[in-house]
């Protein structure tokens, strides 16, 4: 069955330079530097990436950062907590807009 997403395409991510090399090189340099050990550990960055991957709902990123967090020594509980952080922010982002709804209700109600 054909689908828009093919797991094997993830392996070809590095080949995007075939169509535009200078920009791809800049991106991968930047990407590599972002995920290196810094003020945050590579492990912390990987957990953030896993959470963001769920927020943007990118299947490639979810596959990649599930493996990466495990290879950074995280366990399932830590990984699921990271996804809950992303989910809580998403839910909170919706719910905080309820204040606007409440304001409007009050504005137009007797």
């Amino acid at each position: 069955m054909k689908t828009y997403y093919n797991p094997d395409d993830l392996k070809n991510f590095g080949k995007i330079g075939e169509f535009q090399k200078p920009l791809a090189d800049k991106f991968f340099d930047y990407y590599g530097e972002v995920f290196a050990e810094g003020a945050l550990t590579a492990r912390e960055k990987s957990l953030i990436a896993l959470a963001v991957a769920h927020t943007i709902q990118c299947p490639y990123c979810i596959d990649a950062y599930t493996t990466d967090t495990m290879e950074k020594g995280c366990d399932e509980e830590q990984m699921m907590e990271a996804v809950h952080v992303a989910s809580a922010i998403r839910a909170g982002a919706s719910l905080v807009h309820a204040t606007q709804m409440m304001n409007k209700v009050k504005e137009i109600s007797m």
């Binding site: 550990t41 590579a42 492990r43 495990m70 290879e71 950074k72 020594g73």
Partner: peptide, 17 residues
């Protein structure tokens, strides 16, 4: 050693954890 089809984490960080 990893519990599955993935590579081990960096030894020093894992040891500290």
């Amino acid at each position: 050693n990893p519990s599955g089809a993935f590579m081990p984490a960096a030894q020093a960080g894992l040891e500290a954890e």
